[in-house]
Amino acid sequence: MKKVNIYFNRWFSVAFHYMNLIRNNEDGIPVQIFATHPDIRHMSLQGADVAGTEPALEGIEYVQFCVDFCRRNEIDIFIPRLHMMDIALHAAMFDAIGTKVLVCRDLDLLEMILDKGKFYSKVKDSGIMEIPDYHVVDTAEQFKAAYEDLAAKGHEVCFKPTETEGGLGFRIINNSRSPIEELFGYVTQHISFDEAYRVLSGVDSFPALMVMELLEGYEYSIDCLADENGRLLAAVPRRKDNGRLRIMEHIPELENIAKRVAETYQIPYNYNIQMKYGGGVPKLLEINPRMSGGLHVSCLTGINFPYLAVKSALGGEVQPAEFAGDILASHIEQPMIMRIHDESAITDSVN
């Protein structure tokens, strides 16, 4: 049986787990996994059979690098993270060489999802789920007005860039901070309004920020699997508990939100809906049109999200999947000897 060649461009360290989940698939399909990253010692590359460095390029030049890599290594499936929008924009270049790209091809939708401000506005109009009170600002005076409006409504306030990943740039406004205690304590996400306003006032404008109500309830990541047409096949709500504990549990209102998102936006393959409760109501934080950082934990339900997306992209039949009951999970560090990749096997592809 011919091996299926699968390529990951620059991913997070957890891609190590995605690669192994695909490799150890339940159908016994043989795969060969390729990966590139600027750092040849990056942890994600430890899950690859063949790995190499990638250049610091953007736009069409980066896309051309990926196309050349896929052509020379006869890649069947490309699972991108870095420069996803540029890759989606030029998906036809991959079609021309026979490489299937696991990316949302609805460019307007993808652009909107990647900009939280635009997406919140669209979700608010659709009414398919609740969103926090928020303002999008790009000047210090707008920031001040947004903060005062939210505070007047009784909200604790936080802010983060409209275009970012994970917790980058997230701050909580806390006017009761003790700078001396923080100096001797852990690095914190808290900042006073005066300090934030002073920093933002130092420039005429800045990249757009979302200033929003701080939600204090449980936060859930709903890992979703859909076919290439966006038909929902699986959804697993996952939340952090104390310390390293993670809980996958059936929450009907969150599962219904996943269904409505799928029906409305038809996002293909793997994606993640982040919700957080406020006043007993789940409210949207963001949608990531890719595998989430904790997806490998959700796979403990028995649903192999990364492989089933690959199987669907290859034209295989994937049935809707559910998990039986709630699962409590955790993790511990496991030391390992790093494997040094031989880049000579793909030298032509990365030069």
Rank of each mutant, 00 (worst) to 15 (best):
L102V: 02
F143T: 12
G98L: 10
G127S: 09
K124A: 14
A96W: 00
L114Y: 11
L109T: 03
V101H: 06
R171G: 03
C158K: 00
G154L: 09
K118H: 10
K118L: 12
L114K: 14
A92Y: 04
K153Q: 15
L168T: 03
D106Y: 07
C158P: 01
A152S: 15
K124W: 03
E141Y: 09
A96L: 03
Q142K: 15
A151P: 00
E156H: 12
I172N: 03
G166P: 14
H90Q: 13
C104T: 13
K100F: 01
D95A: 10
K160N: 07
E148N: 13
V101R: 07
D106H: 11
L114G: 02
D138N: 15
G166H: 09
V101P: 06
M112V: 00
K153T: 01
S176F: 13
K122H: 14
D133C: 08
D133M: 05
H135Y: 13
E141K: 14
K160R: 15
I172S: 11
I131S: 06
L114E: 13
D95Q: 12
D106T: 00
L102R: 03
L168R: 15
Y147T: 02
K124H: 06
G167Y: 07
F143D: 07
V137F: 12
V103Y: 09
K100L: 01
E130H: 13
L102E: 06
A151E: 13
T162N: 10
R105L: 15
L114I: 03
L110V: 03
E148S: 14
G117S: 07
N174F: 06
K100G: 00
L109Q: 08
E141Q: 15
K118D: 11
M93G: 12
I97N: 06
I113A: 02
S176W: 08
G167L: 03
A92V: 06
L168H: 11
L168S: 12
G169T: 02
N175L: 05
Y147R: 03
A140P: 07
A151D: 08
A140Y: 08
E156Y: 12
I173G: 11
K144L: 11
A146K: 08
K122P: 00
D138Y: 12
D138A: 07
A151C: 03
K100R: 15
D95G: 05
E141M: 11
M129T: 14
I131M: 08
E165S: 15
T164R: 13
Y134Q: 10
V157C: 10
V137K: 05
N175Y: 09
Q142N: 11
H135C: 13
K118T: 03
Q142T: 00
S121I: 01
G167K: 08
A145Y: 04
S121Y: 05
D95M: 01
H135V: 01
K118S: 12
F119L: 08
L150P: 09
V101S: 06
F119D: 11
C104P: 05
D133F: 09
M129K: 07
L150M: 05
V136A: 14
H135I: 00
F143K: 06
E148C: 05
F143M: 13
I128W: 03
V123P: 12
T162L: 03
D106A: 09
V157I: 11
T162R: 04
A140V: 04
E141W: 06
E163A: 11
Y134T: 03
L102K: 05
M129V: 06
K122L: 13
G154C: 10
Y134P: 10
D138I: 00
E111Q: 12
E130I: 00
V123K: 07
